[in-house]
C-alpha cells in the first residue's frame, strides 16, 4: 500500500473521539512541517494483523502524559511511572480498537495486539513508509505514526 493510501483517517477520527469522550477535549492537526516536541516520550506501539498489517506508534511527550494523568485521575503526577505509562497504553489501545472497528465497517478486517510501552527520547518515526500525524489538544501534543501495509 502506498503512503498516500494509508488509512490515517480512522485513527485520527478515533483519537478525536476518545479525547472528546474521556478528556472532554478537542484535537487539532498541526501542519506537517511542524516538528514534534523534543522531550521524553511515552512510546506505545500497537501491532495490527489481518487485511492490514504493521503497527501504529503513539508518542506522548512527558508533559502531555502527565496532563492526561492529572485530568483522568484528579491527582498530581510528576513522573513517568508505571501507573502513568499503563494509563496511556490503555488509551492507545482504546483508540486503536476503535479505529480497527471503523476499518472493519469498511470491510477491512484487522485485529490489534497488546500495547508495547517504552520510554523514548525520539518522537520521530523510524520508518520511511509511515504517515505521521502531529496533533494538539489542551493537554499538549501527541504524535501518531501509522505504518501499515495491505495484505489484500
Amino acid at each position: 500500500m502506498e503512503k498516500q493510501q494509508l488509512p490515517e483517517k480512522p485513527f485520527l477520527d478515533a483519537t478525536k473521539s476518545v479525547f472528546k469522550s474521556m478528556l472532554d477535549m478537542d484535537i487539532d492537526s498541526l501542519p506537517g512541517d511542524e516538528n514534534p516536541k523534543q522531550e521524553e516520550n511515552v512510546r506505545i506501539e500497537i501491532a495490527m494483523v489481518g487485511d492490514l498489517s504493521g503497527s501504529v506508534v503513539y508518542n506522548f511527550p512527558k508533559s502531555t502524559t502527565l496532563n492526561i494523568v492529572k485530568t483522568l485521575s484528579g491527582m498530581e503526577a510528576d513522573r513517568l511511572d508505571d501507573f502513568a505509562t499503563s494509563m496511556l497504553g490503555e488509551m492507545a489501545n482504546i483508540i486503536s480498537g476503535n479505529a480497527a472497528t471503523s476499518l472493519s465497517g469498511a470491510n477491512c478486517k484487522c485485529d490489534i495486539r497488546p500495547p508495547q510501552i517504552t520510554i523514548s527520547h525520539m518522537a520521530q518515526s523510524d520508518s520511511h513508509n509511515s504517515v505521521d500525524m502531529l496533533l494538539h489538544s489542551q493537554v499538549g501534543e501527541l504524535c501518531e505514526h501509522i505504518c501499515l501495509s495491505s495484505n489484500v
Binding site: S21, S73, S86, I94
Partner: peptide
C-alpha cells in the same frame, strides 16, 4: 509494586472509557 501500579493505570482508563462510551 510495579505490577499493581500498571494494573491501576489500565483500570482507571478502561473504566472511564467504559462509562463514557
Amino acid at each position: 509494586e510495579q505490577s499493581v501500579q500498571k494494573f491501576a493505570g489500565k483500570l482507571l482508563a478502561w473504566l472511564i472509557n467504559h462509562v463514557v462510551a
